[in-house]
Design a binder for these strands. Structure first.
Length: 205
DNA sequence: GCGACGATTTCG
DNA sequence: GAAATCGTCGCT
């Protein structure tokens, strides 16, 4: 993402998911008084051949917003306690999206600390998709919101341009399949990037 | 209607 | 290493 205006960002998000994911690095996401600079993302394709995507088996009530226009928030609840947020990408009718996995808190530090009482180091405030949502106060109410609009949760272009050389790619975290697809992107060396963990199936009892 | 499991985090 | 905790989706 080298452009600095909202229209450029909007156009990028309406295109293919991988460039959109790369372009989201460095963007700023503000949620309820806390702003993060996005440092780690993952791309998810729609129904076409990405078994890790929530839209892989087609449209449901939960993933419906993924099939809509780009720039809206796909928020989902997981593990019975955590929220995660995606930015919908691609043309209307195609269900691709980018999971926001981590960010650096650049505004509202005290508020973020209050929302994440267990955290000791500031770099951990939004280091992980559910942590990022907790720090920004994102929950079900944000589902479907236009992030390029003027709501309580807003996505804006980078304050400073992010060079392609600063971006590293690797396999996505925690997904059940498609370990060979390098669709996780992060800013190399940034301390707020989350740790890589392979998917581990839960043990039944 | 029922049950397995998850794009996770935290604590021991 | 394992618990916490519940919405979602496919059907055991």
């Amino acid at each position: 993402m080298t452009g600095t205006d909202l229209a450029t960002l909007s156009d990028l998000l309406a295109g293919p998911v991988v460039p959109a994911a790369r372009g989201l690095l460095g963007c700023r996401l503000t949620g309820n008084g806390v702003t993060v600079r996005i440092t780690e993302v993952e791309a998810y394709a729609g129904t076409a051949g990405d078994p890790a995507s929530h839209a892989h088996r087609g449209r449901t009530a939960r993933n419906a917003v993924m099939f809509g226009p780009a720039g809206h928030a796909y928020v989902y609840f997981t593990y019975g306690m955590h929220w995660c947020v995606n930015v919908v990408t691609g043309p209307d009718g195609e269900a691709s999206a980018v999971l926001l996995r981590a960010g650096e808190v650049v505004e509202g530090l005290d508020l973020a600390r209050a929302r994440r009482p267990a955290v000791r180091r500031d770099v951990d405030l939004a280091r992980g998709p559910a942590r990022l949502c907790a720090a920004l106060g994102i929950d079900r109410s944000v589902y479907g919101a236009d992030l390029l609009g003027e709501g309580p949760v807003r996505l804006r272009p980078p304050a400073a341009a992010v060079s392609e050389a600063a971006v590293t790619a690797g396999p996505r975290v925690g997904v059940t399949g498609a370990h060979d697809v390098p669709w996780r992107f992060w800013l190399a060396g940034d301390p707020t990037v989350s740790a890589y963990r392979r998917h581990v199936p839960r043990v039944r009892r």
